[in-house]
Design a protein around this nucleic acid. Structure first.
Length: 608
RNA sequence: GCGCCCGUAGCUCAGCGGAUAGAGCAACCGCCUUCUAAGCGGUAGGCCGUUGGUUCGAAUCCAACCGGGCGUACCA
């Protein structure tokens, strides 16, 4: 088998199959086949049913038609050309080729896992990318809610996964600290501040009513006893922004979500970056002034000259696939949010990233075409900006009055919402807490494409039923075995030094490979699959792949733990070879469980 | 109206072109003198929204329709 470093075990097997395909084709054995597919088009994966072997490929089936041959015949030809050192291959019914890995190769792979330690599962891409991953990016106008938690969990996990897959990733939080909402926030705090001090003050109509503003006003009073009667609104705005942002940072840290950069929208304006972007668009002829967009004018068949040219400033988004042109500066001279966003994304590219990935809620998906259009208008390739749209979280809670499940609306303005802190620390008391581990698992276990119903009563009550504890428990059990090996220091020492060098021959006994039970074999194969799963989760931006894998790994481990005991063997014979071999497998499984949980941002406890 | 996402077990959801459609929870039946039973084994539960099409092969791709969510601003 060819040695292809940086690739997964599965890649290597696939490559072997592909080599056979190339040879058979070159030898003219594949009938009328005009050309062979590329290597990545060759389907090759573990079959659902283990009786079909460890890996399987339906490649012969798909080649049958173009080759004008029977699929079984093609499969037979390919197997003949296969370099079968390390595995066996057989042809099955309709035309599948089923692979079974030989024990010696399993032993070698196990040694590799242990040797690479916590780096096992890393892969190296052909060309690593510089990626800027932006997510959460909430307004600093209040606590983060559960919806933000979804983006935080997905974003932080994707960052972990992409880094593990060899890309250079920077995470960034865009602070929306400019615009109307901010001054409304400042006004709201000012009102609460004066009210707390016993003065008359009326909340603006669309002010922030939430209790957290009152709390903040009290903090403000403690900090500044003298009345800031003369303080301008901006002062309150800055104070609120600074404190609420800090709260968000604390919440995110507790939710195991770290950001490398915090980028302030204000700096875009203050440093003239917005102006630069507008100039750039202008230079490229992408802007025009009008009362309504060109498309709308045409639609209404208006006289072109109804506007005097002093209307709003439009960006020609329709030229790049958007539905219509978009306003970036209103008639009253104020910039729209789009102007800042164009500038922000342009600036990200200028910082030298190959790929920008944003995670946005579905309520912003209509915004995607215009931002992409702007980047194209500025000369950036459309593949350079990838926007992941996550569907929204709906919170359900039992209403004691009606006895029905009702949606808990998440509105910061009215202040009626469940915060991410509530989920982490509990709404009323710590007993209500879902905690970061269970909350992250729940969120990450489902695709960003599906809208989530989070039943708060169940989320809290069912905490011990959450499968996350199953996976953590598997890790815990492995730990407990090692704790119980105290009477066998020789074995402990052997297991502690596996990484620095370990002979796969240890796994071979008098009658062959020692780990030959179905449970042991299944667990080893599962471990060998980890790098492929990690990489696929990164490529498909799908943390749920990692969640599923973790569950399956834990399940394989539990069966192994249950039926392949170590201590009873040692009591019979402290040097029992099978006990040693199982100890090796136990170390490897514990390590990969910890890696998977780590990528998910979930703790891997030593005991529960 | 148009656009995006979703309709899979009683519930919450995986699977998204390959061999007999899965998991957790809920239900039922077994298993603790053996490394933590937060476990293991087993039973039951499905016209994969509907109809057509593409394919050797469809839960998976395409079209239409039916349901649900979100969006469709000179708001941020």
């Amino acid at each position: 088998m060819p040695d292809l470093t940086g690739q997964t075990f599965q890649d290597q097997l696939r490559q072997t199959l592909y080599a056979a395909l190339q040879e058979a084709f070159a030898a003219g054995q594949l009938g009328q086949l005009a050309q062979i597919p590329t290597s990545s088009e060759v389907v090759f994966q573990p079959p659902k049913n283990p009786t079909y072997g460890d890996y399987a490929s339906p490649i012969a089936l798909s080649l049958a038609k173009p080759a004008g041959l029977n699929p079984l015949q093609i499969a037979e030809i390919l197997v003949e050309y296969l370099d079968r050192s390390g595995f066996s291959a057989e042809v099955a019914k309709p035309g599948f080729i089923n692979f079974k890995v030989q024990d010696s190769l399993l032993a070698k792979q196990l040694a590799l896992i242990l040797n690479q330690g916590s780096d096992y599962g890393r892969t190296t891409p052909a060309k690593p990318r510089k990626i800027l991953l932006e997510f959460v990016s909430a307004n600093p106008t209040g606590p983060l809610h559960v919806g933000h938690g979804r983006w935080a969990a997905i974003g932080s996990t994707l960052a972990n996964l992409l880094r593990f897959a060899g890309d250079e990733v920077t995470t960034e939080f865009y602070i929306n600290d400019a615009g109307n909402q901010m001054s409304l926030l400042g006004q709201s705090l000012g009102v609460r501040y004066f009210q707390e001090l016993g003065y008359e003050a009326t909340m603006p109509e669309k002010g922030y009513q939430g209790d957290y503003i009152k709390d903040l006003a009290q903090t403000l009073i403690l900090e500044w006893k003298d009345i800031k009667a003369s303080a301008p609104v901006d002062w309150f705005t800055d104070y609120a922004c600074q404190h609420l942002l800090q709260q968000q940072k604390d919440t995110l840290a507790a939710f195991r979500t770290e950001f490398d950069h915090w980028y302030s929208e204000r700096t875009l304006h203050e440093e003239g970056i917005v102006q630069k972007a507008m100039d750039d668009l202008e230079k490229r002829g992408m802007l025009y002034r009008a009362d309504t967009s060109q498309a709308e004018q045409a639609e209404r068949e208006r006289e072109t000259d109804e506007g005097d040219g002093s209307g709003a400033l439009f960006f020609k988004a329709a030229q790049f696939g958007d539905d219509k042109d978009r306003v970036i500066q209103r008639s009253n001279g104020l910039l729209t949010y789009l102007a800042a966003d164009i500038a922000y994304h342009r600036e990200k590219f200028e910082r030298g990233y190959d790929l920008l990935i944003n995670i946005w809620g579905a309520d912003h998906h209509g915004y995607v075409p215009r931002v992409k259009a702007a980047m194209q208008a500025l000369g950036h390739p459309s593949e350079g900006l990838e926007i992941i749209i996550g569907q929204l979280v709906k919170l359900l809670k039992l209403n004691p009055e009606t006895g029905k499940k009702e949606e808990v609306r998440m509105s910061k303005r009215t202040g009626n919402f469940i915060t991410l802190d509530d989920l982490i620390y509990g709404i009323d008391s710590p007993e209500d807490a879902v905690g970061p581990d269970a909350a992250r698992w729940f969120i990450l276990s489902q695709s960003a494409d599906s809208s989530v119903n989070l039943d708060l009563d169940l989320a809290v009550k069912r905490d011990t039923d959450n499968p996350v504890y199953y996976v953590q428990y598997a890790h815990t059990r492995a730990c407990s075995v090692f704790r119980n090996l105290g009477d066998y220091p020789e074995l402990l020492e052997f297991l502690a030094n596996l990484r620095s060098g370990f002979n796969p021959e240890t796994l071979i006994g008098e009658s062959g490979f020692l780990l030959d039970s179905p449970e042991e074999r299944a667990l080893i194969l599962r471990l060998i699959n980890a790098p492929d799963q990690f990489r696929r989760a990164a490529e498909e931006r799908a943390p749920q792949i990692l969640v599923r894998y973790s569950e399956e790994l834990a399940n394989d481990f539990m069966k192994f733990y249950d039926r392949c005991r170590i201590l009873p063997l040692l009591r019979e014979n402290p040097k029992d070879a099978l006990a040693y071999a199982r100890g090796v497998l136990m170390v490897a499984a514990k390590q990969v469980l910890a890696t998977a949980l780590g990528l998910l941002g979930i703790s891997a406890p030593e005991s529960m």
